[in-house]
Write a protein that binds this DNA or RNA. Sequence first.
RNA 1: GGCGCCGUAGCCAAGUGGUAAGGCAGGAGACUGCAAAUCUCUCACCGUCGGUUCGAUUCCGACCGGCGCCUCCA
Length: 468
Amino acid sequence: MPEFRLYNTLTRRVEPFAPADGHTVRMYTCGPTVYNPAHLGNFRTFLFEDLMRRTLKLAGWRVEQIMNLTDVDDKIIRKAAALGTTISHVTEPFTELFHQDRRYLRIEDAEGYPKATAHIPEMVALVERLIAKNVAYEAEDGSIYFAIDRFPNYGHLSQLDKRELRTGARVAQDEYAKENAQDFALWKAAKDEDEATGAAWDSPWGRGRPGWHLECSAMAMKYLGETFDLHAGGIDLIFPHHEDEIAQSEAATGKTFARCWCHGEFLLTDGAKMAKRVGNVANVVELREQGISGTVYRHFVFNAHYRKQLNLGEDSLEQSRAAVRRIGTFAKRLAEASGGTEALVAAASKAEHAFIEALFDDLNAPEALAALFTFITDANRELDTGGTDVAALDRARAAFRMIDGVLDLVPEQEADAELAAWVEERIEARNAARERRDFGAADAVRAELVARGVSIEDSAQGTRWKRL
RNA sequence: GGCGCCGUAGCCAAGUGGUAAGGCAGGAGACUGCAAAUCUCUCACCGUCGGUUCGAUUCCGACCGGCGCCUCCA
């Protein structure tokens, strides 16, 4: 096995990675804020994290992944207030939708999906520790802030020390009172709106609610320990979210928070960042409605490296659909084959090596995909020769299983019994027509099938069909 | 203004100091009653201009173009 390497945002370099204890990778991934459907950009990040966990397992490690669900924040409260309801009424359906969408995209279950609102005591305790260490202070309104100038390492992750902060409109307009404009809220004093929507809890500083960054520190440390292996998220979270997580966690414990930080680049739509406020979001429900399978989107995402921006253009998904179709056809062929050749074994080994080499080199999925397609070409050529070596075929199947166990790109063969019976009957009729060389009738049947979205293939073993 | 990323074929996209993976689309051929699938072959002046080097798409600089972050956005 080659060495597993990852790009670490802390050092801005690709470096060897292994879990601290040698067998379990403790990984924290920032999850969605559940106040609307997560869009395809969000899912690009979650897909990158799915690739990460599957690759880590391929490397022989166990994975303990925690993904938080942010179920209390400004936007949720605003929405609940507008609807005259509580935040949980807003977040519950979207939490359910998130998991549905996630499954549609075949994103593996994390080991835990803790909610912020279920960890208020842990967060309060963390704030108390920070106050005790004198790095947090209470403002006049009862909110608690983290004083960034009392944490010398502040800005390391985002290289803030090297940049000039623009003291512009956004900072000046902050709604809360604080000592330094750049200090961030750990705990926000409750406002009427918070109380009305069920977004306020008791604390030593009165009623209030947690700041956004606090939940991740509290939950990560609760489930993964004060120091853990890997923290991942979208690139936009580097600053301020992850910077603040580091500050509050390390200030409290005096220990390294996450050993390695990984960030996925953005998904763009027609050249612009996919975001609600840009108005160019697309989500998984729309994918489903357009009949675009989860595997197609997986292919589209994995076809580019996770640290490069990826544009969702006109026919991106069409191209991926064709690529995935090819993989599906091959999977079926491999399953139905009866034997292989020596060269097939060689192709399988070559593919496995190339695949692992690519993924272990900072999750180079495009190159891993290339290894898969090269294997498909090589294996098809061998299968064409009609080899009879059963062990060789098993070897090829094992290689394909290993590869697809990570990429998970074989489209589902949905079994619709009624359709299948009808199709079988039509195919028989067509073959009868072909027997008597009545090709006009045969083509008419094929047209009938195509009209119902079924394509057929004649082969030496008979006629096969599939849904388009 | 500060920080960072990117510019490779019609499209998507890897990669390397010694003349460039893979996918989609296209072209030619094999197979087929015709198709489809599959197989074979084919398809690149690596943004521009300088510099370093025996040699650069790959390193350095400038420029042009695109994108992102700079307090709550994956």
